[in-house]
Design a protein around this nucleic acid. Sequence first.
DNA 1: GATGCGCTTTAAATGC
DNA 2: GCATTTAAAGCGCATC
Lengths: 80, 80, 80, 80
Amino acid sequence: MSGVGHNSQLPSFIQRVEKLLEEKDALSEDIKEVFSEAKGMGFDVPAMRRVIRLRRMDPAKRKEQASIDETYMLAMGMLD
Amino acid sequence: MSGVGHNSQLPSFIQRVEKLLEEKDALSEDIKEVFSEAKGMGFDVPAMRRVIRLRRMDPAKRKEQASIDETYMLAMGMLD
Amino acid sequence: MSGVGHNSQLPSFIQRVEKLLEEKDALSEDIKEVFSEAKGMGFDVPAMRRVIRLRRMDPAKRKEQASIDETYMLAMGMLD
Amino acid sequence: MSGVGHNSQLPSFIQRVEKLLEEKDALSEDIKEVFSEAKGMGFDVPAMRRVIRLRRMDPAKRKEQASIDETYMLAMGMLD
DNA sequence: GATGCGCTTTAAATGC
DNA sequence: GCATTTAAAGCGCATC
């Protein structure tokens, strides 16, 4: 069974989430505009996304992953 | 070919995006907390998400979809 | 630390997975073709997908979800 | 408007897709088992997935991407 | 060992 | 074909 919450409280929760979602949407728009501007100056947007993802990773974890990847690629003959 | 942009301008773009992403992350955290609070009061969080998704859809589109779905479900014998 | 596996065994595992992935890709292609054919006859593909998704759900679970959704939508004044 | 297709034909399309989906599910299970076996022998499954993804990319495209990534990372001071 | 759940990441699909 | 939006998969964790 689900839903023992008092349903009169539901609108408040829903509206709080919706307000936050609207703010998220606005930020997504802002990000899109930055990428659009960068693209207009000749930058490669997917590459920018990849770099940003790497920068957001923990550096130690990133190095560890790169090390394992290299080991596995070597074992697969992908580095010759 | 990609990347004719002047790379000295890249850090500015990247940093602008990263700042916006941090704000998005903060909002995601806020949303998570609202759902957590709602869950603590007995609400069904996946159901809340479904309702929110419906509310964010264009009403006309929502009705149209529901109508088609019903037609197809009827054709599939799912409504007996 | 990761990767105590004997790397000489890695290619076998990788190739087994890749073969299975190719078979999955072929099936995905087949599915795409069925939808394409259906679309060509006037069917609404996204609606078909929604119906299929519903059919793949456990019926009891589906009913339970629909019931909760209705309760919540009622609480949100979406059913008037 | 959607749905000019003759609905008596819908079940056939739906069932064809569902059959293919079941086959896909079976393959997904098989893949999961291979990874589970590999994991049991000490291999790093996420790393295996990354390697497989790289292997499935077009080599020229992969090289091109790596090159751009390096350029951008250099511009961001991530390679010092 | 397998089940469920929340979160993250990845892939697919839709629409322009 | 490309970009956005949406759905699915995978992973970690907790539990039984």
